[in-house]
Design a protein around this nucleic acid. Structure first.
Length: 934
RNA sequence: GUCCGAGUGGUGAAAUAGGUAGACACGAGGGACUUAAAAUCCCUUGACCCGAAAGGGUCGUGCGGGUUCGAUUCCCGCCUCGGGCACCA
């Protein structure tokens, strides 16, 4: 193919891409004689815009690791697929009437072509799409298993519902400790005598997939509910529309049952501390006590959660969330009007308003009093929206002296503030420190805060007033979406309106065809429009009025991505989401690369599903991703030209960036492609947008300049760089090397088109070196030294995922080889495959034809650096002394310990310090460190 | 507010069991080849100072201290930036 001594990637990249495809070069078959390695990328949502240069960053890194591991003798699973259900395709369908399946297929074709052009070693036979019925059959299947399970707190694992029923009929509610809605007190006999509907309702409160009426994040603009991680600062993450809180009947997943395990298992994962911390924050574990307050003239009690039971003697009032169910009951008639007005007002507030009002203190007195459990003191009960209904019990004991929110509230409404630690100053703010000695606190006096917490907790338990508990911020995940383009939830409603599972044999429950993708006029989800959307347990899907109604909401976007790595292991399996055999071989994902934006969404849900599958015995491990790396974003560089402010009628005038001189201008984004090193190609600008043809341009001596700004790559800012264009002008190898060279993989960095030339120059040089007709048959000593140093460095760097420095090492090596006249072909073959796959294949073919030898770039063994070549002739070594102190010595190779006293010390003061001392032992690590023991 | 992470040339960045700070590359400047351009190659490029030059010196890894013969690296206290969580009791 390539016979040129000029580097012309266009001549061979396409050819090799085709060859790999035809030969199935990257097909993977499990080989039990080899160790396995699983390198996974977060699969993309195939958007209409295609890939931009930021997307492949992580893919390139995982591709390098996959190739490296293959050369090291591993059987490597490196798959790719598409997270192809989602909102944008549906929004597009609503606007245009085109079926999301159709546009999704087109987008996928485009993604596939772009990915292939980049030369990735994916096994395309294993490609999956979450919107494919053959795939979502298993998403639905797992959902049904969740529906068929409950969480046993005794054994700390999920179990089948049938086992719960057995427990209940044998021992009644006393035999069961389950996560979920509290069971009513029932004896075994009482349970047995319940009718099936009543039983079903109780079970429904304990299933891991359950329906409940609760406050949800409702997004009117999108017409659907959203999970907590899909809401950012009161706006929807996708689209940025306002979100309200609304009480709705919804499908949920009981992920809170797994909170403790999600938290504990983080410790064993090789993830960044930042990401683990994000998940810990999201799970939000806090330990404390729950205790009950009696209400004056009422049978009811108020249960509160506190992390500071030690401050119980500092309580001066109680506060309930406006949504608290006790409000109506305990409010005396004369306070009703005011209380109801407050409840209504806070119900009307959107999530956003509530957040905006954080500093505003509001509340209302209910007129009722609670009694202090130890002193019997009357404590007024207030209502305030700073207490959240969804956390703890929706009620708190207020200790204004030691909690800043309670303090502000007490100040605002003139309630008593009682410090209970010695010397606490509470005039200007609450004393929140946990250092201190208790005072004014009866039996706690004289104890430290931590001892007092312990003492009080024990006391509460002994007196039966409360107990130690653990609270989490994590909420159950809302699972239903009022949308069309998602997996249908495989549930129907029987004559009693009880949700029942669709039979396994009827899966996949396929998305029906509908005429419009909008909600119905009654506000039902789009699926309610389907002609055929009822279910008969015998016949399956039926039309008209036959059978029972099917659920009309669909699963959220993260459903399909919560288990997809398992499907790659065995993508064609028909009797299980993946055969046990395949799952056992491939095990966990060894390296997972993707964006940090999924920290509390995908990366949390996809830790829950395997835990559940583990509990039920379908997989052998409960954590899916051993090592996880978040690649940084590549930001775009936007070009801005400056329009002078002008009156109506005046011609529009633009001014070069250097000539603004304080004049008032308005920056306008123009396509970054029209700018070269800050200079705007005015002719191209004219043809880009006709409005510029008539405008006037005030240029500088050397042209008209734009200013630049680093922003997120987006169509809107006209700063998107398309990998297709880069590949066309530079080649895929240059793009790959450059993205790795740009900086550490986890770092955010701006795209810099100019930098491409450096990597291109390097590849040209390498090509010339490799295709030189006068190749020497043996490499010189010096050349071998360069190569082996390079092998060592690149090996270490890839192991530690430091790709930028491995590219640098490679460049240095090539520079050295050029100087020393070496060829180093053998090492190059393999080194080059890693970092850039196309050129070495092309070069290999060329070598074969010149030398008549055979070499296989694809299956070659990873070279091991020979220590012989790592020695330098004279080295400056860092040295340790007495295991602690270090200084600098110059050593010659082959030197014996006794000779070391002759060494030259580079630093005068260090030399004086060492004078007259003779070393006992010298330890030399190739090219690195010498330890000298005296 | 709180918890993580990070601060090194004009730019992206190297170098941490403490040991020549700035590798590699971009950009900039100068030069060679060329009618010219492209391509390629060579030199200079942290700051300041001394010197005609060769060369030499001082300072320098956010700031201030500390440990050490020696600190970008370790310890203490700040400052700034980025990120997570946030009326979570």
């Amino acid at each position: 193919m390539a016979k040129d001594t000029e580097y012309r990637p266009a001549q061979f990249e396409r050819y090799w891409q085709q060859q790999w495809k035809e030969r199935g070069s990257y097909r993977v078959v499990p080989d039990r004689s080899k160790p396995k390695y699983y390198a996974l990328d977060m699969f993309p949502y195939p958007s209409g815009a295609g890939l931009h240069v930021g997307h492949p960053l992580g893919y390139i890194a995982s591709d390098i690791v996959a190739r490296y591991k293959r050369h090291c003798g591993y059987c490597v699973l490196h798959p790719m697929g598409y997270d192809s259900f989602g909102l944008p395709a549906e929004q597009y369908a609503i606007q245009t009437g085109r079926h999301p399946a159709e546009t999704t297929a087109e987008n996928i074709a485009r993604y596939r072509a772009q990915l292939e052009a980049l030369g990735f070693c994916y096994d395309w036979d294993r490609e999956i799409r979450t919107s494919d019925p053959a795939y979502y059959r298993w998403t639905q299947w797992i959902f049904l298993q969740l529906f068929d399970s409950w969480y046993d707190l005794e054994q700390d694992r999920a179990r089948p519902i049938s086992e719960l029923e057995t427990l209940l009929s044998k021992g009644g509610s006393a035999a069961v400790r389950a996560s979920g809605k509290a069971l009513p007190n029932l004896t075994a006999k009482e349970w047995q005598e319940l009718d099936s509907r009543a039983k079903e309702e109780i079970l429904l409160g304990l299933r891991l997939a359950y329906r409940s009426e609760s406050f949800v994040n409702w997004c009117p603009a999108l017409g659907t509910v959203l999970a907590n991680d899909e809401v950012k600062d009161g706006y929807s993450e996708r689209g940025g529309y306002p979100v309200e809180r609304r009480k709705m009947l919804q499908w949920n997943l009981r992920i809170t049952a797994y909170a403790e395990r999600l938290l504990n298992d983080l410790d064993g994962l090789d993830w960044t501390e930042a990401l683990k911390e994000t998940q810990r924050n999201w799970i939000g574990r806090s330990t404390g006590a729950s205790l009950r307050f009696k209400i004056e003239q009422s049978e009811s009690e108020i249960e509160v959660f506190t992390t500071r039971p030690d401050t119980l003697f500092g309580v001066s009032f109680l506060v309930l969330a406006p949504e608290n169910e006790l409000v109506a009951e305990l409010t005396p008639p004369e306070f009703k009007t005011e209380v109801e007005a407050y409840v209504l007002a806070s119900a009307r507030k959107s999530e956003r308003d509530r957040m905006a009002d954080v500093r505003q203190v509001s509340g209302v007195f209910t007129g009722a009093y609670a009694l202090h459990p130890f002193t019997g003191e009357k404590l007024p009960i207030w209502l305030a929206d700073y207490v959240l209904a969804g956390y703890g019990t929706g009620a708190i004991m207020a200790v204004p002296a030691h909690d800043s929110r309670d303090w502000s509230f007490a100040r605002r409404f003139d309630l008593p503030i009682r410090p209970v630690t010695e010397g606490a100053q509470v005039e200007d703010s609450a004393f929140e420190s946990k250092e201190g000695i208790l005072t004014q606190s009866d039996f706690l006096n004289g104890l430290s805060v931590s001892a007092a917490i312990e003492h009080m907790s024990r006391e509460l338990e002994a007196r039966g007033l409360g107990r130690r508990i653990v609270q989490y911020k994590l909420r159950d995940a809302v699972f239903g979406r009022q949308r069309y383009w998602g997996e249908p939830i495989p549930v129907y409603y029987d004559a009693d309106g009880i949700p029942r599972p669709v039979r396994e044999g009827h899966l996949p429950l396929q998305l029906p065809e509908i005429d419009l993708y909008q909600p119905t006029e009654q506000g039902d989800p789009p699926l309610a429009r389907a002609q055929v959307w009822r279910y008969d347990p015998e016949q399956g899907l039926v039309g008209g009025d036959l059978g029972f109604p099917l659920e009309t909401t669909t699963m959220p976007g993260w459903a399909g991505s919560s288990w997809y790595w398992l499907r790659y292991m065995d993508p064609a399996s028909n009797d299980r989401f993946a055969s046990r055999e395949a799952e056992e071989y491939w095990g966990e994902v060894d390296l997972y690369i993707g964006g940090a934006e999924h920290a509390t969404g995908h990366l949390l849900y996809s830790r829950v599903w395997p835990k559940f599958c583990f509990d039920r015995g379908w997989v052998g491990r409960s954590e899916p991703f051993k090592k996880l790396v978040n690649q940084g974003m590549i930001a775009g560089v936007s070009a801005l030209i400056h329009r002078l402010e002008s009156a109506a009628g005046e011609p529009v005038r633009y001014v070069s960036a250097g000539l603004i001189n304080g004049r008032k201008t308005q920056p306008i984004h123009i396509d970054i492609g029209l700018v070269q090193q800050g200079k705007v190609d005015l002719e191209a600008l004219h043809s880009w947008r006709s409005e510029f043809e008539r405008a006037e341009f005030e240029a500088e001596e050397h042209g008209f300049f734009a200013s630049e700004e680093v922003e997120k790559m987006s169509k809107r800012w006209h700063n998107v760089v398309n990998p297709d264009d880069v590949i066309e002008t530079y080649g895929a190898d240059v793009l790959r090397l450059f993205e790795m060279f740009l900086g550490p993989i986890e770092q955010h960095k701006p795209w810099n088109t100019q930098g491409l030339s450096g990597v291109q120059g390097f590849l040209k040089k390498l090509w010339r070196l490799a295709t030189r007709p006068d190749l020497p048959d043996t490499s010189s000593e010096e050349a071998l030294r360069s190569i082996h140093r390079c092998i060592k460095k690149v090996t270490d760097d890839i192991e530690s995922l430091s790709f930028n420095t491995s590219v640098s090492a490679f460049m240095i090596c090539v520079n050295e080889l050029q100087e020393t006249g070496g060829s180093g072909r053998d090492a190059f073959e393999i080194l080059a495959v890693l970092l850039s796959p196309f050129a070495p294949h092309a070069a290999e073919e060329l070598w074969s034809s010149i030398l008549g030898c055979e070499a296989s770039v694809l299956d070659g063994e990873w070279p091991v650096a020979n220590p012989l070549y790592l020695q330098k002739s004279e080295v400056v070594y860092p040295v340790s002394f007495n295991g602690k102190t270090r200084f600098q010595l110059v050593l010659k190779p082959g030197m014996k310990p006794a000779e070391v006293q002759e060494i030259a010390l580079t630093d005068e003061r260090s030399a004086r310090y060492l004078e007259g001392k003779t070393p006992k032992k010298v330890i030399v690590v190739p090219d690195k460190i010498v330890n000298i023991v005296f």
